[in-house]
Design a protein around this nucleic acid. Structure first.
Lengths: 112, 112
DNA sequence: GCTACTTATATCAATTAATGATATATTACA
DNA sequence: TGTAATATATCATTAATTGATATAAGTAGC
């Protein structure tokens, strides 16, 4: 995605979508990876490069934030912000509509 | 979208998703743009650069094909192939599951 | 005939997004 | 001791998208 920043456009890539979803409950980076794998039955996975790169970007965009008090082992803990939740819900709805658009056409053609 | 070709990974970007969906009924390029705008109430639109670039790639991947007999005005007409339909249905299901994953978590948190 | 708009196709350069590879350190456990 | 899992981080590379630009044909109004 080029030429236009998807976050500035108010859209989430699949990677950002799952990170925001996973961080509705505060946790540190590595747990985000594991949570997403578990949540999607390993159909979607994010490697460390994508994870930490995207986390940095989401913090900058204030869609997630780093918590003040790190946990016992000094791991950085993140949580989705109010803005993040709002955008996530919007993006759930956008995907819902993408499915609906397809269902309507398949239905009209007598398929599915 | 980097390092790995999404089509080779068996995934569709939103742009390819809507083009395949629009070409379930054969039509030429320009009509694909107009159909997608209408289908999505102008919430999603593809400009000429994205359109013709993506069409070329989808033809190469045999997810759409150019029809032998062009229409009266010599416009190139395309249609989604059997492989294209199969992948499109898989991608509808993937998006359906992305929505479900979010719904489950929001529900567990008492939201929505 | 002229002008403006829509239809229609096409390409290039630029930018963002994602990731394989790699590095480093700590903890767990056999 | 070794090795596997946990945990964080960065770089260079590649893919996807698109603004800008170009071209040409048709059509509607004056």
């Amino acid at each position: 995605m080029p030429r236009t920043d998807s976050l500035e456009m108010g859209e989430l890539t699949d990677t950002s979508y799952y990170i925001l979803l996973s961080l509705l409950d505060a946790k540190h980076g590595y747990l985000v990876m594991k949570t997403i794998e578990q949540m999607t039955n390993n159909t979607f996975s994010i490697g460390p490069a994508s994870l930490y790169t995207t986390i940095k970007k989401l913090v900058k965009a204030k869609l997630i934030e780093e918590l003040e008090q790190p946990d016992i082992q000094n791991k950085k803990t993140y949580v989705t912000t109010k803005n993040g939740i709002q955008l996530l819900k919007k993006e759930v709805q956008r995907r819902r509509e993408m499915v609906r658009h397809a269902e309507e056409i398949f239905k009209a053609k007598g398929e599915i």
